Amino acid sequence: MAKLYFYYSSMNAGKSTTLLQADFNYRERGMKTMLWTAELDTRSEGMVRSRIGLEAEARLYAPTTDLWSAISAVHADTPLDCVLIDEAQFLTKEQVWQLARLADEAGIPVLCYGIRTDFQGELFPGSAALLGIADALVELKAVCHCGRKASMNLRVDEHGKPVAEGAQTEIGGNDRYLALCRKHFSEALA
């Protein structure tokens, strides 16, 4: 039975690297995969990219993308063995239910990778939906500078100073975010 998986963490835990490894494992065995990433992440340019240099082409999804229809159409012509979604925090609740339907009705395993919370400790809509309905939840570990598990994403400005307010989504990498344990996240914002 196919399942909907959610691999989540703070920034810098290797989510994209893990996704690319899973994709490689399927393809190495002659299986057909389909990769997706968020159109919102303008750094991606139609690619899933990891910080360690691995990358693969991916389709782009927007909040209006009907993932059920797009993936089902491909699956009807060329059966898919797995669908992998990067930046899953940017999925809408409706898209998460579409992915669940792919697992339940089309029998395609769907592996989603994303950040659980934003820079204020609030759940992203896609992450909230996945935490609620995914068949399997897997936390990937990032490390705070103190050595503890990093579970929070601290947004910083161009001078490296903590940012406590702003839009939920601001695209950036190590230049804009630090993965910290809850203690150091709270201290930085105090």
Rank of each mutant, 00 (worst) to 15 (best):
K3C: 10
K3T: 04
L4D: 05
Y5L: 03
Y5K: 13
F6A: 03
F6Q: 07
Y7D: 07
Y8P: 04
Y8Q: 01
S9W: 06
S9Q: 01
S9P: 00
S10H: 10
M11I: 01
M11T: 03
N12C: 14
T17N: 11
T17P: 07
A22F: 09
A22R: 12
D23I: 09
D23R: 13
D23S: 11
N25D: 07
R27W: 05
E28S: 14
R29E: 14
G30W: 10
M34Y: 12
M34L: 14
A38K: 00
E39P: 04
L40W: 02
L40I: 13
R43I: 04
V48T: 10
R51V: 00
R51T: 04
I52A: 10
G53D: 09
E57F: 06
L67D: 00
W68A: 07
I71Y: 03
A73S: 12
V74G: 05
H75G: 05
D77V: 11
P79D: 06
D86W: 01
A88T: 04
A88M: 07
Q89D: 00
F90W: 01
K93N: 09
K93S: 10
Q95Y: 06
Q95T: 12
A100Q: 14
A100H: 10
L102N: 09
A103R: 03
D104C: 01
A106I: 06
I108Y: 08
I108T: 02
V110P: 11
V110N: 11
I115F: 15
T117G: 03
Q120K: 11
L123Y: 14
L123S: 08
P125D: 06
G126I: 08
G126N: 04
G126E: 06
L130I: 03
G132N: 10
L137V: 08
V138W: 05
L140V: 05
L140E: 00
C144E: 02
C144A: 07
H145S: 15
G147D: 13
R148E: 15
A150N: 07
S151W: 12
M152L: 07
R155I: 00
V156K: 04
K161I: 12
A164T: 05
G166I: 00
G166D: 01
A167G: 08
Q168I: 08
E170V: 12
I171G: 02
I171C: 02
G173R: 05
L180I: 01
L180N: 02
K183N: 13
F185E: 06
A190R: 08
